[in-house]
Design a protein around this nucleic acid. Structure first.
Lengths: 252, 252
DNA sequence: CAGTGGTCTAGACCACATG
DNA sequence: ATGTGGTCTAGACCACTGA
């Protein structure tokens, strides 16, 4: 039973989010279970729509619930865990498990591009760059928007465009067919809100927080191979990593 | 100049957030610069307070601005970059740079604790556990709340309590004075909203999104050493990592 | 004190989904 | 047509800050 203390200095929306969270967990509500509608909650608790919505937004961003316009509010399935810090890429990380992985190619072009990107790849401004943008899906649900800028393998960008990267793994193709061995990568991860565009492709609301990842990968000779910018839905993802300690105690 | 298109199907708050973001970047506004007050924006743009506030919330979570009750809205300094995936810990990661690092100890106790924690450390339920909770600060600003559960080194938990972990690095003490060599760690990272408690210690509003990290560290023999749960302010932090590819092409 | 941001309301209208 | 969530308003009151 939800009880709001209106005298408390804890905001109503915050009390509400806490209590609904506890109700979902305590009752072991199955993913997909529908919660009472906004209007029901409002009249039940004598709360205004805006206040209730703010509580719901917190739970949405926490990944506990999903809201569908015209339909209702539902308990979410638990977050998907992504092995972040392997160099196997999306397909490698998520395949072979209980999830089915696929991609939709949004852009696949070759040409000059943004000078900032080019310079971060260590190339001269005129060098053509392969741009591959994909929506990544798990169980046919979009979970990430990924845009890769590639230094063309052995100067023959055209060879790449023959592949269907809706199905193929980019990393696999680079390794198997172009002999590119990845050596290391630099990655940053932060929280950001997507723009209209990201939210549309990931079919979430514009104020859903997302993981914004940026990765630059280098081959074993230290040449930049790709720069990837991706948005992952933070309400559907947990990242995980295994860290190995440096062998000899040199640092610090 | 900010222009809102009320006919557009892009929400007003979203247009607003985009445009204010662009203004800050285009005008190279210095960190600390004060923005117009809510009321000014509202009357200037014929926007209601609630709508404006929603735009501001997006920018706050993006780390672009900071709002202080009774004072105003200010441009934030850029996010701090944290080497996430080194095993050197907070002190090691952030010291020796332009930042001054410190901690405030909130709890430092020894005793039995939550059965779930104990079992994840691979211990029997009665085994006493050292609990060390700290607020981590950079330049005297709180950026993280960190709670560590430690398996007592060589069964002598009392030895640990002699240290002042407001100043000492936990990892350094474990290595230098207890001979514990960390071998590897498992880490997960997700986005969550802090509770009242986290927001208070990190002095941010209750709806600020945070990175929630959980790390279990193991020594070179594979014994669990610690389990750490931390909250990092997502509006102040970017995580970065360097990934090294596996040497021989075994996996996948 | 006046000005700031934070919360909340009651009600309006919308776009959307379903029967 | 009804019910859903999403947006927006105009105004209220609060707690906080700084002069």
């Amino acid at each position: 039973m939800i009880q709001i203390n209106f005298e408390s200095d804890i905001p109503v929306y915050s009390q509400l989010a806490d209590q609904i969270r506890k109700e979902i967990q305590a009752n072991h509500m199955e993913p997909g279970t529908m919660l009472p509608s906004d209007r029901e909650y409002c009249s039940m608790l004598n709360i205004s729509h805006m206040t209730l919505k703010k509580a719901m937004e917190i739970l949405v961003s926490d990944g506990l619930i999903t809201r569908k316009k015209g339909v209702g509010t539902f308990v979410s399935p638990p977050k998907i865990k992504q092995e972040l810090f392997s160099l196997s890429g999306f397909t490698g990380d998520n395949s072979g498990e209980e999830h089915s992985v696929s991609s939709k190619v949004l852009e696949f072009t070759i040409g000059p591009c943004d000078p900032e990107i080019v310079s971060r790849l260590g190339l001269t401004p005129e060098t053509p760059v392969v741009v591959l943008e994909r929506v990544r899906m798990i169980n046919d649900e979009p979970v990430a928007l990924e845009k890769a800028y590639l230094h063309c393998p052995d100067g023959q960008p055209e060879k790449l465009t023959a592949y269907d990267f809706g199905r193929e793994s980019l990393y696999r193709v680079l390794r198997k067919d172009f002999g590119i061995q990845l050596g290391y990568a630099q990655e940053t991860i932060e929280i950001a809100y997507g723009s209209r565009r990201e939210s549309q492709y990931l079919s979430c609301s514009i104020d859903t927080p997302m993981f914004k990842l940026e990765r630059t990968s280098y081959d074993t000779q230290g040449r930049a191979v790709e720069l990837v910018q991706s948005f992952y839905r933070a309400d559907k993802y947990i990242f995980s990593a295994t860290l190995i300690a440096p062998q000899s105690g040199s640092k610090q």
